[in-house]
Design a protein around this nucleic acid. Structure first.
Length: 297
DNA sequence: CAGCTTACCTGCCGGC
DNA sequence: TGCCGGCAGGTAAGCT
């Protein structure tokens, strides 16, 4: 589930329900989710017990909770990760991987739980990572970050021949966009994802960026309801998916603009969805073919 | 070295 | 019913 809007929903929930709490115990139920932590499962737990969570930050799809002392609990949800805040007695979720006992002054104890079916996600304690974990340094700012540099983004996109969808998914260029929001933003801009960046006009890239922001903001508005006082629920699917998707997952359904059935094609080991009329396939998908000059002899 | 493929996991769904 | 392939919104390592 998690692209930027979903991760932001989780961040807000953690800000509300976990920040200010002290970690009193950590239980690692599966080692895989802490594989990135150089200390190993035991060291991971030891580095957290007794610490207080002082904030909840995010860049793109990465999330971290700074700790008193300057380290941070870093999290990535991967494909199926969830962060849940539960009362300690709640039955264990099927894919519960790590749990943290939390105590906040003047409040009932709670449990923070990392639940992840596929375990592509993970947790780590980032040494000195309170401001920006080293593990996140290569990730670009996301389009909702006030310091995101629009001009630099436009310039970089137009410098490369790579298809625009691939560039949207490149987290070192712009972060937070995944397969769904890439397809949705491209549909809104009427651009095919195979259009080479270098063949787009600056105004088109700007318009695309504006649509990326719009679709993420819309999603955020609808995903914000899945929190309540007791738990942090990551299920952004329910509200947003049914109503607002115009391209992603809509194969065969009529395009909401022109009625043409949405098409699905293979893309980078998954799928792309687009309207073949509104978003025409570029004539030469890529490969700048040019005629070699005659050889002097 | 930019750009593409592959690996990493588990579960579900549809076809045979 | 059971088995198998395909597919799922993630990143990053590895190959060309």
């Amino acid at each position: 589930m998690p692209e930027l809007p979903e991760v932001e929903v989780v961040r807000r929930g953690l800000e509300q329900h976990a920040v200010g709490a002290r970690v009193t115990a950590v239980e690692v139920l599966h080692v895989r989710p802490v594989r990135r932590d150089p200390r190993g499962p035991e060291g991971f737990a030891d580095a957290l017990v007794g610490r207080t969570l002082t904030a909840a930050r995010r860049r793109g799809k990465y999330l971290w909770l700074p700790l008193d002392g300057g380290d941070a609990l870093l999290a990535h949800l991967g494909m199926s990760g969830q962060m849940l805040v539960q009362p300690p007695g709640a039955p264990a979720e099927r894919h519960l991987r790590v749990r943290f006992a939390l105590e906040r002054p003047g409040a009932e104890p709670t449990e923070l739980r990392f639940v992840d079916q596929r375990m592509f996600g993970g947790l780590a304690v980032s040494a000195g990572g309170a401001e920006l974990p080293a593990e996140v340094a290569h990730i670009a700012r996301d389009p909702l970050d006030p310091l995101f540099d629009d001009d630099a983004f436009v310039a970089r996109v137009r410098r490369r021949a790579v298809g625009i969808k691939r560039q949207l998914l490149d987290q070192t260029l712009v972060s937070g966009i995944g397969n769904i929001y890439a397809d949705e933003a491209l549909w809104r801009t009427r651009l095919h994802g195979d259009r080479p960046g270098e063949r787009l006009r600056a105004a088109q890239v700007r318009e695309l960026l504006a649509h990326v922001r719009d679709v993420m903001t819309d999603a955020l508005a609808e995903g914000g309801t899945s929190f309540d006082a007791l738990y942090v629920d990551v299920n952004g699917q329910s509200g947003y998916f049914d109503r607002s998707l115009r391209a992603y997952g809509q194969e065969g359904r009529p395009c909401q603009r022109c009625g043409t059935p949405i098409r699905r094609v293979a893309f980078a080991n998954r799928s792309s969805f687009f309207c073949p009329v509104c978003q025409p396939v570029p004539r030469r998908p890529r490969a700048t073919r040019r005629i070699d000059p005659p050889r002097p002899r």
